[in-house]
């Protein structure tokens, strides 16, 4: 089984792109499954099911969604192996722009859209900078020039990535993306021994452990203060 991780800010078109891409993968006779990671709520599983795709979802609730992802991806891979998938795609919403649960040796895709503004590529951390493939969506609503400028910004923060334009509504570009997702010799049988491409922030303070009260005396562990300057 191949594994591909897809991340990107909310509502950029991850689900739309994955759904269109799976159409091309299926026509090649491949069996594809999806696992959706989110924070509090997601309807994406319904969309995948409607399209006849086997899907599982995981909600992190009060935990950091990326920590939750890493702690569960192994079990998810076992589920996919049990289902005999040729390709397992994980979709997760990048919520804080800092993190990215990409794994060394596993194809990593970051989805962003043309509408997010040209300053966005430099604000997104490893999720964009260490992806292997960057998919840019919603090109249908902007001009050719804006598409070119946006892609060049993405290129300047991640020159090694393949950049593809995909339209999540019409599927334009999704066939082309599908050719990069499955390789005969990229099969995995376990994630044991693999590592994350980037460490996640060290975050363990009293609020991580359920504290709700505000005030200096309740703040313990890894706490850092904002610098507001002098009046």
């Amino acid at each position: 089984m191949n594994l591909v991780t897809v991340s990107g800010p909310p509502s950029v078109g991850k689900t739309s792109v994955i759904l269109k891409t799976i159409i091309s993968l299926k026509s090649r006779g491949l069996k594809v499954g999806v696992v959706k990671f989110d924070c509090l709520y997601t309807d994406d599983d319904v969309l995948y099911e409607k399209a006849g795709i086997e899907v599982r979802k995981g909600l992190s609730g009060g935990l950091c969604p990326d920590h939750y992802f890493v702690s569960n991806i192994e079990e998810v891979v076992d589920w996919g192996l049990g289902k005999d998938f040729d390709l397992l795609i994980s979709e997760s919403a990048g919520l804080c722009n800092r993190c990215s649960p990409y794994i060394n040796g596993i194809n990593a895709i970051c989805v962003i859209d043309n509408l997010s503004g040209i300053g966005t590529p430099k604000k997104i951390g490893p999720m964009l900078k260490s992806a292997d493939i960057v998919v840019i969506t919603k090109g249908d609503i902007v001009s050719q020039a804006e598409r070119e400028v946006f892609a060049s910004r993405v290129h300047s923060v991640n020159p090694k990535a393949v950049i593809l334009h995909v339209n999540g509504l019409t599927g334009q570009g999704s066939f082309e993306l599908s050719t990069l997702l499955y390789k005969e010799n990229d099969h995995i049988t376990s994630l044991k021994g693999k590592t994350l491409r980037f460490s996640m922030p060290a975050a363990l303070c009293s609020y991580c452990l359920g504290e709700t009260r505000i005030g200096e005396s309740y703040q313990m562990g890894n706490v850092r203060k904002i610098d507001l300057g002098k009046n």
Binding site: D140, I141, V142, Q144, E146
Partner: peptide
């Protein structure tokens, strides 16, 4: 050339 000719910037 986009069918939908808007600028967003």
């Amino acid at each position: 050339l986009s069918q939908n000719m808007n600028f967003v910037m």
